[in-house]
């Protein structure tokens, strides 16, 4: 596991937050994923060794929580809310718009490697539906036009690189 020194430091710090090391499982997985972009194959063994657990204990957790991913994704992660309030306001169309913009399908990395579009369950911003979480940022009232506008921004940023 090739983690940045700052990540390793955060890992050691967060373990001190709990009287029982196992509690740090989710925080460690978040930190590793933030550092590497996903959870590489040796994650479970590494976390287990760090927290004095068995690897299966960590694998059970990794696969339970949808936010943890065991495969790399596109440079940007577009999560469109699928649940009722957003769907009532056109969430499915929003998702399709993103898929079209990046010539991709839900759950896949776009051919240019730029994004992964996913449907996710309720993001708890139902009053501003449909909502989309792009990486850490929440975007509200994302109709098709706004989805196109956000896509254009991402594409423009990609061109600059």
């Amino acid at each position: 596991m090739n983690l940045k020194p700052a990540t390793l430091q955060s890992i050691d710090e967060v373990i001190t937050h709990y009287p029982v090391k196992r509690s740090a499982t989710l925080p460690l997985l978040h930190l590793i994923q933030e550092d590497i972009g996903y959870l590489p194959p040796d994650t479970c063994e590494w976390v287990a060794a760090k927290l004095e657990l068995q690897p299966i204990n960590v694998l059970e957790v990794v696969t339970f929580y949808p936010m943890f991913r065991q495969k790399p994704i596109g440079r940007r992660h577009i999560k469109v809310c699928r649940t009722l309030s957003c769907a009532l306001m056109g969430g499915y169309k929003t998702c399709e718009q993103f898929e079209k913009e990046f010539n991709t399908h839900r759950g896949e990395v776009s051919p240019d490697g730029e994004v992964t579009v996913d449907f996710v369950e309720c993001l708890a911003s139902c009053g501003t539906a449909p909502v989309v979480l792009i990486d850490d940022d929440l975007h509200e009232k994302v109709d098709c036009a706004k989805a196109k506008q956000l896509s254009d921004q991402i594409k423009a940023e990609a061109k600059k690189r």
Partner: peptide, 22 residues
């Protein structure tokens, strides 16, 4: 303590299990 995308963590004993790293 951050969750990771599981509605059931809103149930208090599910939340406790999650906080215990399970």
């Amino acid at each position: 303590h951050r969750g990771a995308g599981a509605y059931i963590c809103g149930e208090e004993t599910g939340l406790i299990e999650s906080l215990e790293g399970k």
